[in-house]
């Protein structure tokens, strides 16, 4: 489903004399179909850079990444994925319905299917009542839900979520968890990054922990907990080298 091989991502500074910054350092990952995979790491660990490569926003310096066996450099690799960015911004002058119809057009969803899909996702994210209103009039929570709707419009086999519960209230977070569970039950694959380790423990089948561009741990949550004899948060802090201050 999702395969990363020896991925290296480097960023060159525009200033002369500044060293090249290696954001991802030889990452290799394999995500199987039907699993919910958590991608964890502190800020600056390389999670966003990895996602940017998967989504084609950035070219890898070395290594390869594949979605459904297709190199991510090909636009067609993204035909069967849905992406929810951390910060959801959409065309303010369009309505929710128009945004979904726009993205459906890009996915080339047949006309007779588009309306059904739009109705289904808007009902799922509970935005049916506001479908004809322009995005400019939406609250932040509603905009997040539009984001989720556009990520699901093409009935994706793989969902890539970047901090999906960021900024949501507890009810919103619960709804997102429910959607992730539903997708898993439908046999979809979910790949998401998060700082909410409690939620990750609740929903994920497997996790990977990244630190300073390198993969520090990968496996089932239960296996990691058994191996390290601590909860996920403690494992995370240990692997990223965090030392609690003595009190």
């Amino acid at each position: 489903m999702l395969k990363i091989e020896n991925l290296i991502v480097e960023y060159r500074s525009k200033e002369i004399g500044q060293p090249v910054r290696r954001a991802v350092d030889g990452l290799s990952l394999d995500v199987q179909a039907g699993e919910v995979f958590g991608f964890l790491g502190p800020n600056g660990a390389g999670k966003t850079s990895t996602m940017n490569v998967l989504l084609g926003f950035v070219n890898a310096t070395a290594g390869d990444a594949y979605l459904f066996g297709v190199n991510v450099k090909e636009p067609v690799a993204r035909q069967r994925i849905g992406y929810l960015p951390e910060l959801t911004y959409y065309y303010k002058f369009l309505t929710a319905e128009e945004i979904l119809r726009f993205y459906a057009g890009i996915f080339r969803i047949p006309r007779n299917e588009v309306e059904n899909r739009i109705d289904a996702v808007l009902k799922l994210v509970e935005l049916d009542h506001a479908r004809k209103r322009v995005i400019k009039s939406y609250s932040k929570g509603m905009q997040q839900r539009v984001g989720l709707a556009q990520a699901l419009i093409n009935n994706p086999d793989l969902l890539i979520l970047d901090e999906p519960t960021s900024g949501l209230d507890p009810i919103g977070r619960m709804k997102v968890r429910e959607i992730i569970q539903r997708l898993r039950n439908e046999g979809k694959t979910v790949f998401f990054s998060s700082h909410e380790l409690g939620e990750v423990e609740m929903v994920c089948d497997r996790v990977a922990i990244l630190h300073e561009g390198k993969l520090r741990a990968e496996g089932k949550v239960s296996s990691l907990v058994n191996q390290h004899q601590m909860n996920l948060e403690q494992i995370f802090l240990k692997l990223v080298g965090f030392q609690p201050s003595p009190n």
């Binding site: 960015p85 911004y89 890009i106």
Partner: peptide, 17 residues
Amino acid sequence: ENRTIFPLLAKPVSRGQ
């Protein structure tokens, strides 16, 4: 600026398109 480029390029569409 509005970051709408990200959800757009996450679709099967290239920058040239």
